[in-house]
């Protein structure tokens, strides 16, 4: 049956026009080079990052002369020696690392039930409510949210006001390690839930029913069936939370009040307070190495295949 082109859906006509335009610019259609052409923007972007990294690598090998405020002419490993010998840096790295691990564990423990209820509830209203509650924080930046916690947890904040009503002396809820971790967990939760939800949706409800009929209690179904099957989602979400927490800047800066610096804060101080670009670059490279090592360890323990990156899994 013949149809006039004007009766085709709008989308088809738009696509046809784009194809015609592309053919006019590139008459042969690019042939086998088209896929590479489409890769170019991404390669340029990543390439720029590599160039920046090379500059940082160069800076990390030059020390700052405190009297002349000039960088050394020759490469030296002095910054690296300093990074590994200064107790303050060790404290900051250890604090960041432990913080990231604790935040990851707590976030996954909170995100899993949230995602599970969101995916499994038969109540459409509850599901929508959970989804909106999840997305709302994304519209509010991290810094604004951190300031929100200042208002809520401050000495004259809402929490201390309520505690005051029942006669409790104002508690110091801010500018300590737990406050930073608390802020980070709250910031990471939506990321973790969003990464877990598709993994849980992929587990058929029938599998849980089957486990029940085979004699598994609810808890046994969770531990023997749902959690192992959700492993790729848990690892993916865990990696995202781990790396984002390890490199976070705003939460330690605002909720830590300068007493709870993470690595990113230390790097910021070197670049913008002491203007020691060389030492800052060294710390930045150490942070990259630390993050890469963590990801490497996760892959080594669980295998890259668990992330469903391995095509043969499908």
């Amino acid at each position: 049956m013949q149809r006039s082109p004007s009766s085709y859906p709008l989308m088809w006509r738009v696509m046809d026009a784009l194809e015609a335009a592309f053919a006019a610019i590139w008459p042969k259609g690019g042939g086998k080079y088209t896929p590479y052409l489409m890769l170019t923007p991404a390669i340029v972007l990543v390439g720029t990052l590599v160039v920046g990294l090379l500059y940082i690598g160069d800076s990390s090998l030059r020390t700052l002369d405190k009297s002349t405020f000039q960088f050394s002419e020759f490469w030296t490993l002095e910054n690296y020696v300093r990074a590994f010998s200064e107790p303050f840096i060790f404290t900051v790295v250890w604090r960041s690392l432990m913080g990231a691990v604790i935040v990851t564990i707590v976030t996954l423990m909170l995100a899993f039930p949230y995602a599970y209820v969101m995916v499994r509830t038969p109540n459409a209203f509850l599901r929508k409510f959970l989804l909106i509650a999840l997305f709302l924080p994304f519209f509010i930046g991290q810094v604004v949210r951190a300031y929100g916690w200042l208002i809520i947890l401050g000495n004259q904040g809402i929490v201390n006001d309520v505690l005051g009503l029942v006669g409790v002396e104002p508690l110091r809820l801010l500018f300590n390690y737990p406050a930073v971790l608390f802020g980070l967990v709250q910031y990471m939760l939506p990321f973790a839930v969003l990464m877990l939800a598709p993994a849980l949706t992929a587990i058929p409800e029938e599998i849980e029913a089957a486990a029940g009929s085979l004699g598994a209690s609810w808890v046994e179904t969770m531990t023997h069936v749902v959690l192992p099957m959700a492993k790729p989602g848990l690892i993916g979400a865990g990696l995202v939370v781990l790396t984002l927490s390890l490199t976070d800047f705003a939460m330690p800066a605002i909720l830590g009040g300068g007493t709870q610096d993470f690595i990113a804060n230390a790097i910021y101080d070197q670049f913008f307070r002491t203007s020691d670009q060389g030492f800052g670059a060294t710390l930045a490279l150490l942070l990259i190495a630390l993050g890469s090592m963590l990801v490497g360890v996760v892959f080594a323990v669980f295998g890259a295949g668990t992330l469903a990156l391995d095509g043969s899994q499908k």
């Binding site: 058929p204 089957a210 029940g212 009929s213 069936v225 099957m229």
Partner: peptide, 20 residues
């Protein structure tokens, strides 16, 4: 009586085997 307390074996429509 809950399913896991019944002595009933079931073969499901989509089999519901444990892939792991």
């Amino acid at each position: 009586v809950a399913p896991n307390k019944r002595s009933v074996g079931m073969v499901f429509q989509k089999l519901a085997l444990f892939p792991h």
